[in-house]
Computed example of a mutant assay.
Amino acid sequence: MGFRLNAYLDRIRLSNVPDGLAGLRALQESHMRAIPFENIDPLLGRVPSLDPKSLSDKLLARERGGYCFEHNRLFGHALEALGYAPRTLLARVRNGAPEGGARTHQAFEVTVEAARWLADTGFGGHGALHPVGLDEPGPQVLPNGAYRVVRDAVAGETVVERQAGDVWISLYGFDGHTARRIDLEAANFLCASWDGAPFKANLMLALHGPDGRRAMFNRALTLGMPPETETRVIDRFEDFARVLREEFRLDVDHADLAAVWAKIETAPTRR
């Protein structure tokens, strides 16, 4: 059993998908509001599977989340099933830095209504709830803030930025070349296994709820988007388990919760 579109739409609570750009927007926002970003498997030494059956079991049936390769592989299956033609990209995460690292983030370029759009449900940082227009040179006001794309001629990349107060923060950059399935498999293994990636050493969660974006870095729980955020540090395992189950809506068994807590109990609460 592979990808099931009806099960996906039930999971993201979307009963009707409009045509064209409206449908693309609805899919991305509904996905990001329903399925959390989380890296529990890599943190516990597991390489996430990207095959359709495993993704459907984990993110749909078991109501878990995942990191970018899991989110966007699932999202990509939905786009294809609905008649979109997503083109896969690999990006270098910047998160405010002047240049990116390895190609460890997946996103899509989707052409719809005679324009190109960057569609992405799996960025664990401050990603856009709606696709970002790649042909629009100016700022774009989306449901969770203002975004823009700029050209970095030195790196040969298109860079996605988000406005935070009076400044623009770089999120990630991509060169526009189409990534193949083997590229994604290799990048997924690298992200889950490499000490140079953040996922083996730190817990990272994110979910866009009705009261704003929730994020967690190890034991630090943050509500809101920069520059307006509130953060508190969780000190007890019981509170940690409740937050994951109730605020991030993650179905994680007790053994895994205990194993995660053991790894983050004394870990830093700032990146």
Rank of each mutant, 00 (worst) to 15 (best):
F3P: 10
G173I: 11
G138D: 12
D120M: 07
V110W: 11
L203M: 10
L171A: 01
L118K: 04
F237S: 00
E113V: 08
L9W: 13
F37G: 04
L257Q: 14
L221T: 05
L50E: 07
A107W: 10
R236H: 13
D235L: 13
G100K: 06
D19L: 09
L89T: 07
G138Y: 06
Q140K: 05
T266V: 02
L55T: 07
I182W: 13
G212N: 04
G165C: 07
A34K: 08
G125H: 09
L171S: 09
V149P: 01
R180Q: 13
A146T: 14
G156K: 04
H71L: 03
Y8I: 10
R64K: 12
T178L: 07
A241Y: 02
E265F: 11
G176Y: 06
A128D: 05
F69Q: 03
E136H: 15
P198F: 06
G122H: 05
P227L: 01
R62V: 00
M216F: 03
H126A: 09
G133I: 04
T269M: 08
P131C: 09
L203N: 08
H130R: 02
L44D: 05
G83P: 12
E157V: 03
I264R: 06
L44N: 08
R271C: 00
Q140T: 01
A262L: 14
L55Y: 10
Y84I: 07
P52N: 01
A255C: 00
R249W: 10
E29G: 02
D41Q: 14
E157W: 06
I35E: 05
S193L: 02
D19G: 11
R13T: 03
L24H: 07
E70W: 10
R162I: 04
M216T: 07
L257P: 09
R94H: 14
H254I: 09
R11A: 12
L257F: 01
A262K: 13
D183T: 06
R11K: 11
D41Y: 02
T88E: 14
V110T: 09
